[in-house]
Design a protein around this nucleic acid. Structure first.
Length: 442
RNA sequence: GGGGGCGUGGUGUAGCGGUUAACAUGCGGCCCUGUCAAGGCCGAGAUCGCGGGUUCGAAUCCCGUCGCUCCCGCCA
């Protein structure tokens, strides 16, 4: 017992007949007249621990006083027992150490079958996260992020970490958080956009970044956060945004495959989703065509949108794509110049359209990308056309004055993708800790 | 920022003009020869978000307020 190594509960079937040390939370205690059954839970699973009270009445007394979710260290012998429904084995308790006695009652019971409201769950997120589906969520997310990294590394990308404190607004400025920075003001980066492009000007050719993004939008929806993790990339020597889309769809195909290989069963069990690896290529719908489709589908766009498509329209298009192409994903391409930022490249023959795209997954926008305008004089003109003052963005414009390869890239929302993949109704449970206009704690 | 919905024991819900405010779960106690989402019995726990109004009477109707939530705008 003194120097015994801990055995994970999932590994107990390989330890039949052996004495083991297991540690975890007390999931349930069934305290009977002659016997006590403890269900112990660690990150790998649950096991039944059995104890004959008369073997040690004093210890039995101690077990009776245990509260649910207390943290225990237990030693005992693993025995095969087909009668036990939980894995057909149990640990016969020899020693017990209470590492941490949980107070009762619990404000949130992780073992309860009825879930409290999401808001209450977020108040007690650390208890909420003891539930198996949440544990599974983060294991899946870890695999997903690893798959992205694998794919990028296989294709010659370099990882960068751009600063999140900025001296000036990078784009619009309206959605920036302002912070005190000694005797001046700084802003939290609402995108690594400019810095990714800086890496292109530096000749890195291919970069990616996984990092925090801040948006000061007072958005009250099930898919917005004020702080989220962005998966961003930028690549040089492309011909058009088509190259970026092709890269993205192949990467998502790979990522879904990796997740499916490892977690298909868990995803089915915890989220009721049969994970479908999306086939490539994804359907592409130019904006002009999308408007026609919506007309045929009987969806009326709000008149003030003018070439843009609202979330309802995106959902309608998603249904259309599901029906016509049997696909969960589609690219909405060639957005009007009027609704895109100044750095998107325009079509040479259609200056009213940009070489840009959004990726819609099950009706939710998860990616925005484009070929960027890398020609200094044109970029400068476009900034002026958008009514931007050049002075605060001159450092950015300078990237394009001394040779810059043609390039493009995209930004993807990690939680948005997780939400879509696992059919979660709300982004607040697709993230470790949610940050929104009314939520800064815990 | 605009619009809709909700707010009842710790939690999740029912009740929607007159009820000792109900049910489930959790909590406490007792019982039960191995249980297994254990089961059985008993008990504690809510002045029905807050303020005002209508009414003989309000958890129930009206107004305001706060909180949450969803949709729109914005986006990842």
């Amino acid at each position: 017992m003194i120097c015994m190594e801990r055995t994970l509960i999932a590994h107990l079937p390989q330890a039949i007949g052996q004495k083991v040390k297991i540690q975890g939370f007390l999931h349930t205690l069934r305290d009977q007249k002659t016997m006590q059954f403890l269900i112990l839970r660690d990150r790998s699973g649950m096991v039944q621990v059995a104890f004959y009270k008369k073997a040690n009445p004093e210890l039995a007394e101690q077990i009776s006083r245990l509260t649910n979710e207390s943290v225990l260290t237990i030693t005992g012998t693993v025995v095969e027992n087909p009668i036990v429904k939980l894995g057909g084995l149990e640990v016969q308790l020899e020693t017990l150490t209470v590492e941490s006695l949980a107070e009762a009652p619990l404000p949130l019971d992780p073992t309860a079958e009825v879930l409290p409201s999401l808001d209450y769950r977020l108040d007690w997120r650390f208890l909420d996260m003891r539930r198996a589906p949440v544990t599974a969520f983060f294991e899946i997310q870890t695999t997903l992020e690893m798959a992205f990294r694998e794919y990028w590394l296989q294709h010659g990308f370099v990882e960068i970490h751009s600063p999140k404190l900025m001296g000036s607004a990078s784009e619009s400025g309206a959605e920036l958080f302002e912070v005190q920075y000694f005797d001046t003001k700084a802003y939290l980066a609402q995108s690594p956009q400019f810095y990714k492009q800086m890496a292109m000007a530096a000749g890195f050719e291919r970069v990616f970044e996984i990092g925090p993004v801040f948006r000061a939008d007072p958005s009250f929806t099930s898919r917005h956060m004020t702080e989220f993790t962005g998966l961003d990339m930028e690549m040089s020597y492309i011909e058009s945004h088509e190259d970026v889309m092709r890269f993205l769809e192949n990467m998502l195909h790979y990522v879904y495959q990796r997740v499916a290989e490892k977690h298909a069963a868990a995803i089915e069990a915890h989220f009721g989703v049969q994970l479908e690896v999306p086939s490539v290529p994804f359907p592409r719908i130019p904006m002009a065509e999308a408007v026609e489709i919506l007309k045929r589908e009987g969806y009326t766009l709000p008149p003030e949108k003018k070439g843009d498509i609202d979330p309802g329209g995106e959902r309608t298009l998603a249904q259309f794509v599901r029906r016509e192409y049997n696909h969960d994903f589609f690219f909405l391409t060639d957005w009007p110049w009027t609704v895109r930022p100044f750095y998107h490249m325009r079509h040479p023959d259609r200056p009213d359209l940009t070489r840009s795209f959004d990726l819609i997954a099950k009706g939710t926008e998860i990616v925005t990308g484009a070929q960027r305008e890398h020609r200094y004089p044109i970029l400068r003109e476009q900034a002026i056309e958008k009514g931007l003052s050049l002075e605060p963005i001159q450092f950015y414009l300078d990237f394009f004055r001394y040779g810059c390869p043609p390039h493009g890239g995209f930004g993807l929302g990690l939680s948005r993708l997780m939400m879509v993949m696992l059919n979660l109704p709300n982004i607040r449970e697709a993230v470790f800790l949610f940050r929104g206009p009314n939520r800064l704690h815990p």
